[in-house]
Nucleic acid binder design. Structure first.
Lengths: 350, 350
DNA sequence: CTGTTAGCGCTTTCAA
DNA sequence: TTGAAAGCGCTAACAG
């Protein structure tokens, strides 16, 4: 029994791609003998449709081979079900963890993730934000709180929910979720000083937040009259071999170091391997501190100590914040700050 | 001189979000004194517009504060400028590298990346593909060549360019870009056998492609009458501590092992650290092989040997393949297979 | 619970 | 080089 099925239309677009256009809502409606809006409801808010009608629609969907198309709906409703995430790079495990946390949360809520990279450059971020905005996402998650004025302005006037992550600030664009990097540096200093460390070196990647942690470390050390003996800066992202090489340089120049503070676990593992190859006792003679110690993608091993931050949690919380802003929009919620904190993981008896 | 600027319209959507709707093409056209389509051309194909007109449009854009909106254009032209990437997880460095390579290539071409995770589960992939398709991306990049029949069918009928990656197959959905995992296993066996290794263990994560590499390894070893002494399987993704623990178990059970073949560099680094803590000479007494050795996010250190695969290159090539299919669509290009190969990195004199 | 009407904001097509 | 008309496929708002 062949009802009036929509014929397969062959469309040749000007860019000359030959494509098969499938059935539309209208086609389904015709076959089901209802109106298009009823099909829309049956598909998206089935509880608003009588079971009987629902069944007819479902049958028609089968018969026509209808495939959902969110694009027109997004246009008509101004809800794209898309959330954008702007990262400096994915080549750092903490960001990989964050992506997973963000994506999982969004997927569960029926949203999808648009991903873009700024390469730690503000001007790139500015262009990227503009491009992203042109897609009208339902929310934007940014890394850090350092943006050009123009980016901030653009984001504010767009009226899209924005979450800044991995940091704290007194003047957020909208919502911030993260922790204080100065505090991390301070806590690291306290931790190592309490254990009698006196001869410090910093092994860091050229990342603005790492710089702030180092700053916090140095300020806290200075209060005890201690200054860092040497700093080695590696390119972003800090890799394991770069960590090994950096540690080698530091130890060559200062064989009596008793603490190397690294800006990432990758660098720290490199340092650990270098120390091992020199027969240095870690953490007996030399303490090595990392940063990260993630859930999904990487974990440190003893005898490394590290600062644990939960990238997946930050990502999930950021996504959650967007979602809440979206459905609670009427309540005009105020901007929020969420401090996710960090945790110092001590290993060995150093 | 206040021309008839569009007033800022306050829209209250049913979901009750208060948002400011900006100027549209029509607004710009009115201010510029031209037709909407001319504004569209001035913005997207400026070479088709007289410089004089162009200037008027640009001035009007300034004056109205017009912000580009791709959504209606995507609907009207069936070109979303969106490419989707489906990964099992991001918690594996090789995929992180791939994301970066894909994103960089797409961004340069004015496209953006939609990212989704299947968690190594076919049914998740199937749902994800359906959701992705409902957004009408211009292309889809998948991981591996193992998909449900229904996924394959759906993808084919959608008429969207598809690239399968990280593998080779005789029956691609469309295009494949990757290498043979059996060959990797074979090459690894040959390499180690040539260096006199006889007592093998496998340290692997439960990943289908890793399984195929192990398979290739074992087949090649069997030809020399050698069988693997033990296999330790860790959860995906293989982490450094898991590698260390797995190596410990293997070495406890078989102290005389002379080769541990790992399914990732993460696991291998863990094994290396364990070997170091036992005072085992690597690679003198024990060879440790990794897999990955990436460009962006991770590199192995000596004395680890490894199989190098270029995730960023695979990602970039996949994006490129989509783009080519898009603009050369008229030529109805045939499906292609690209073997990106791999490279065995030998370190130490083992 | 279901339908009617009127767009969402841009692009395509064809004509001038 | 520019414009007019006609959608793209779906949803909002309101009426029945």
């Amino acid at each position: 029994m062949q009802k009036d099925l929509p014929e397969l239309r062959l469309l040749t677009t000007p860019t000359a791609q030959l494509q098969v256009s499938g059935a539309t809502l209208v086609d389904v409606a015709r076959v089901a003998g209802v109106s298009p809006i009823t099909v829309s409801r049956a598909l998206n808010q089935p509880h608003l449709v009588r079971p009987n009608t629902l069944a007819k629609v479902q049958a028609a969907v089968q018969e026509t081979g209808y495939a959902k198309n969110m694009q027109p709906g997004a246009l008509a409703s101004s809800r794209s079900k898309l959330v954008a995430l702007v990262l400096p790079t994915i080549s750092n495990q903490i960001f990989a963890d964050m992506v997973q946390g963000t994506s999982d949360t969004l997927t569960e809520a029926g949203y999808q993730l648009l991903l873009g990279f700024s390469g730690y450059e503000e001007w790139r971020e500015e262009i990227l934000v503009e491009t992203i905005l042109s897609r009208r996402p339902d929310g934007i998650i940014l890394t850090g709180t350092l943006h050009t004025d123009s980016t901030r302005r653009r984001l504010q006037q767009a009226g899209t929910p924005v979450v800044e992550t991995w940091d704290m600030t007194a003047s957020p664009i909208d919502t911030v979720i993260g922790f204080s990097h100065e505090e991390v540096g301070h806590a690291t200093a306290t931790h190592l000083l309490q254990r009698g460390r006196k001869r410090f070196a910093i092994l860091t990647a050229g990342d603005p937040r790492a710089a702030r942690r180092n700053q916090g470390l140095q300020v806290a050390l200075a209060k005890q009259g201690i200054s860092v003996m040497a700093t080695h800066t590696a390119a972003v992202p800090g890799t394991l071999p770069a960590g090994r090489e950096g540690a080698a340089r530091l130890l060559d120049a200062h064989p009596d170091l008793d603490a190397i503070v690294c800006s990432s676990d990758n660098l720290a593992h490199g340092a650990l391997i270098e120390a091992g190859s020199r027969g240095l006792d870690v953490p007996g003679k030399l303490a090595v501190m990392g940063f990260g110690d993630l859930n999904f993608s990487s974990h440190t091993v003893p005898p490394l100590s590290t600062v644990r931050v939960d990238g997946a949690r930050i990502g999930a919380a950021a996504a959650q914040a967007i979602l809440e802003r979206l459905d609670g929009a009427a309540k005009a919620q105020p901007a929020r700050s969420v401090n996710t904190g960090f945790e110092l993981i001590q290993r060995g008896s150093s």
